[in-house]
Design a protein around this nucleic acid. Structure first.
Length: 571
RNA sequence: CGGGGCGUAGCGCAGCUUGGUAGCGCGCACGGUUCGGGACCGUGAGGUCGGAGGUUCAAAUCCUCUCGCCCCGACCA
């Protein structure tokens, strides 16, 4: 491609609505543009990267025996109604009425649709196992789209669905996808962890997330520093904790302190001065578990694990009480709630009850209590209800957990018969007996991965694409006003193309600085610079985007040198 | 949905407090000089000031409503 004819609208300045590196760089380097919140156009360069990722995904899915198909995105509501997700999905489902008033929606994921297809067409164990996948747009009216391509309302997903005759066979399919995903993420040049995860609205029994490590990720995960245990903090387990009661001989008398405008733990710590840390405070949160009001207490520096709390309470979902509901239940404003003299059920984490002489909300606005101790001043059911964090013992070995942030790039699920039961998808076995088909489903956020790769591969100057996903492998940059560099660069460019190397020829009449800046911004892995100065010695320059120095190469050898450099980058 | 911020030329911003000619930088077009890390000079094109209503002789500026975008939280395969 000749740069002078290419649609690559780069920006010198950072667009004001972008804050994440991937978002800023995709806009600045001309890979994408925003149309609305969470709705993006992929420009030619972005589309080339998308196709590169899709190719890798297809190769690995096909190699695992999955077959590609294409289901519609515009769907009659009846299938989600059949599974119950028409209600369960709530406002996240983008609903549409047709001219006759019929109820439709855009597909957020396709378990029901593929299950319907399979129940119509698959009748016999002889047709199983089966794994079907597609790469297409998905629609979710996210409560808060954000961070460019990382959380969109329209995005491209690879979704695969496996169908088996038994739990054992389904687990083998799951394991095969697990292995495929490893190869995909490795080929994409990503640093990632596979973590145990919650199944969420998809339903099912077991799931694992492929989390791309990045400080800008939305998810928190913990991983053991010694064994392979890793989990999303939503469900992470941790080794046993003592939960020792505080020593009564060291307890000080309770003191009530007026603490205006201290609603958060940070504000409380700041109010009580430099000797107090968050670990000496208690965080009290009011939840609605079904109809019951529950006060959950964790140490101030810890976070509540809501999924874990809900499971231990035996309810499907917990609702954090609104400001008004807290006021009604406790007669206290948020920020001043505490366990002392709380009327209802109190659940406290072992680490919370061990705090000696804790600071906590007084249950009265605007006061806090000092020197609160479990056993003496309040009594709680002690359950492990906080999220795991750095320093916690590993549940599986003697190692220690570390906290990371991640971007959920893939998620694989064992579904069992969750959908096949509801939708009556069955097969006949050798005996002629009918059984529900055992399913699994496997998603990769393809457009999200474009952004995730940039989050891991960039510097101050721009993107640094891994060679397998780069939109072009080489940019040939003639510089200077003479004819000779352009002539020579064009010759090199055409030879590279003849060799099957994707190259961009920067034939614009720009000054060298502009071309270098753009080449770095775009992130093309290799740059060949052709200038009059080098040509006098018969050389051109070869530079890797990830290295600071370039190397002089005899012009006659540049194609083989380029091939060698690409091979080195690929390995 | 709660909290905070922002909407003025393609992009980044000033002007608004105290109402009165819509500005700056980059980019774009043309001419000239320049040419190895986002050059310089000159000329020029380009704006329903997010939208609607109101106050006023007069609104980018004041008031009301509304739409959109970003961030934090709630929520979320």
């Amino acid at each position: 491609m000749r740069y002078s004819r290419a649609f690559i609208p780069t920006l010198k300045e950072v667009p004001k609505d972008a804050t994440m590196p991937s978002h800023i760089l995709m806009l600045r380097a001309g890979y994408a543009r925003m149309v609305g919140a969470g709705i993006y156009e992929l420009l030619p360069l972005g589309t080339r990267v998308l196709h590169k990722i899709e190719k890798i995904v297809r190769e690995e899915m096909d190699a695992a025996g999955a077959q590609e198909l294409l289901m519609p995105t515009f769907l009659p509501g009846e299938y989600f109604k059949e599974s119950g997700r028409w209600e369960l999905y709530g406002p996240t489902l983008l609903r549409i009425k047709d001219r006759k008033g019929g109820e439709y929606h855009l597909g957020p994921t396709h378990e029901e649709i593929v299950t319907d297809l399979v129940r119509r067409e698959v009748k016999s164990y002889r047709q199983l196992p089966l794994n079907l996948y597609q790469i297409q747009n998905k629609y979710r009216d996210e409560p808060r789209p954000r961070a460019g391509l990382l959380r969109c309302r329209e995005f491209i997903m690879k979704d695969a669905y496996s169908f088996d005759v038994s739990d054992e066979a389904a687990l083998a399919s799951y394991q095969q996808m697990h292995d495929s995903y490893h190869r995909i993420f490795q080929r994409l040049g990503l640093e990632y962890r596979v973590v145990e995860a919650d199944s969420g609205a998809i339903g099912g029994k077991q799931s694992a997330e492929f989390q791309v490590l990045a400080q800008t990720g939305e998810d928190w995960i913990v991983a053991c520093d010694e064994c392979d245990y890793a989990a999303n903090v939503e469900i992470a387990r941790r080794g046993p904790v003592a939960g020792a009661e505080p020593d009564p001989s060291k307890m000080l008398p309770v003191e009530k302190v007026e603490t205006p405008n201290t609603h958060t733990i940070e504000e409380v710590v700041a109010f009580f001065g430099p000797d107090v840390t968050a670990a000496q405070t208690l965080k009290s949160l009011v939840y609605l578990a079904s109809d019951e009001i529950v006060l959950a207490v964790v140490r101030g520096d810890h976070e509540i694990n809501e999924i874990g709390l809900a499971r231990q309470l035996g309810v499907d979902a917990l609702l954090l009480a609104s400001d008004a509901a807290v006021k009604e239940a406790t007669n206290t404003e948020i920020g001043f709630v505490g366990p002392v003299d709380f009327g209802g059920r109190i659940i406290a984490d072992p680490d919370a009850v061990s705090v000696l002489n804790a600071i906590t909300g007084a249950g009265e606005t605007p006061y806090h209590l000092k020197n609160v101790n479990h056993g003496r001043d309040y009594t709680a059911e002690v359950l492990s209800i906080r999220q795991a964090t750095s320093g916690d013992p590993c549940p599986n070995c003697n190692g220690t957990l570390q906290l990371y942030r991640g971007i959920e790039g893939g998620h694989i699920f064992v579904l069992g018969t969750h959908y096949s039961d509801k939708m009556n998808a069955t097969f006949l076995d050798e005996e002629g007996d009918s059984h529900p088909i055992v399913m699994g489903c496997y998603g990769i956020g393809v457009t999200r991965l474009i952004a995730a790769i940039i989050e891991q591969h960039h510097d101050e100057e721009g993107i640094r694409w891994p060679v397998h996903v780069a939109p072009y492998q080489v940019i040939v940059t003639p510089i200077g006003k003479d004819e000779e560099p352009l002539t020579k660069a064009t010759e090199i460019y055409e030879t590279l193309r003849d060799q099957g190397i994707e190259a961009l020829l920067d034939d614009r009449s720009e000054r060298p600085g502009v071309k270098f800046k753009d080449a770095d911004l775009l992130g093309i892995p290799l740059r060949i610079t052709v200038g009059s100065r080098g040509l006098k010695q018969g050389t051109v320059e070869l530079k890797k985007r990830i290295e600071a120095e370039s190397e002089d190469v005899p012009a006659a050898d540049i194609v083989s040198a380029t091939q060698a450099a690409l091979a080195a980058l690929r390995s």
